[in-house]
């Protein structure tokens, strides 16, 4: 019976090579997106519940076509997957448990630059047996990036400012998005290269040309109140404005190019 089901799934998978997994479950927001972009129809069974959250996921509509999982070993095992996609920071107990149960789990590293994005797209293509599609996706990514045009001589400074006065440092995707869009990162320029909390006073003294704030979550928190602090409001009004990071900033996928494009647009109007 089970053999029959997997044979049927193989038929649906079509172009995938014979070795390709047929029952794939993704439990990480970023692997969700890469898998949805690359998997053959019917190959991917389920994506994480975060893929359904419009604040974090740029692929909410696509996600609706898949089952939702909450990253629990039990529910994932019940889906009888032949491949589970996870991030390196996914719950190690869940990953360990699934592996002990004999499920193949592939973990993807965090992307901290555009090369990391390319590498993860190719890796996803490999594990899904969709190497050609992955190569096409990378080629498209490079073409789209090139089409955004060259950066100007002058790099205006942009401040990445998240809840609790957190900034991203230079080992982050957000930093690379800024650079790709022709901005300089205000904090790293000032020598604050490690991600972490920086006192608001010091951030204000940087006088950035653009303030890029983390997107507030529903409900309220003191951590997010600083995003709307009057000192920053003054900066935002006086300078060229403000913008939010959103779902397109979270994961290393081709969607980061939309974020880059929006920033390029802002820079050109400055």
């Amino acid at each position: 019976m089970a053999a029959l089901a997997s044979a049927a799934a193989l038929l649906v998978a079509g172009s995938a090579d014979a070795e390709a997994p047929t029952r794939v479950v993704s439990m990480n927001l970023c692997t969700d997106q890469l898998a949805m972009l690359l998997a053959d129809e019917g190959q991917l069974l389920s994506v994480s519940h975060i893929a359904f959250d419009p604040l974090a996921s740029p692929m909410v509509e696509e996600a609706a076509g898949y089952e939702k999982n909450h990253g629990q070993a039990e529910e994932i095992f019940a889906m009888r997957p032949d491949l589970v996609l996870a991030g390196v920071y996914s719950d190690p107990y869940t990953v360990g448990l699934l592996r002990r149960l004999g499920v193949d789990v592939v973990q993807f590293p965090l992307e901290t630059d555009f090369d990391g994005i390319r590498a993860n797209m190719l890796k996803m293509g490999e594990v899904l047996g969709q190497v050609d599609a992955a190569q096409r996706l990378v080629a498209q990514f490079d073409a789209d990036l090139a089409a955004l045009g060259p950066n100007g001589e002058e790099r205006p400074s942009a401040l990445l400012h998240y809840a609790n006065n957190y900034t991203s440092g230079d080992k982050s995707l957000a930093h690379q998005i800024l650079l790709a869009a022709g901005f300089a990162n205000a904090t790293t320029e000032a020598g604050i290269t490690v991600a972490g909390s920086v006192p608001l006073e010091r951030l204000v003294l940087l006088m950035p040309d653009l303030v890029i704030s983390g997107q507030p979550y529903p409900g309220a928190s003191r951590a997010e109140e600083v995003l709307d602090h009057p000192a920053l409001r003054v900066l935002q009004q006086k300078q060229s404005g403000a913008t939010l990071t959103d779902a397109e900033w979270v994961c290393g996928t081709p969607f980061v190019l939309r974020a880059v494009a929006r920033l390029v647009d802002i820079r050109e109007r400055m």
Partner: peptide, 23 residues
């Protein structure tokens, strides 16, 4: 709260702080 930061702010409400307050 649906806000991921809210739960950690029990400390603020029970212990109090003046950091990053404004007019």
């Amino acid at each position: 709260s649906p806000n991921p930061f809210a739960a950690s702010e029990v400390v603020f409400w029970m212990m109090g702080s003046l950091s990053d307050r404004s007019f």
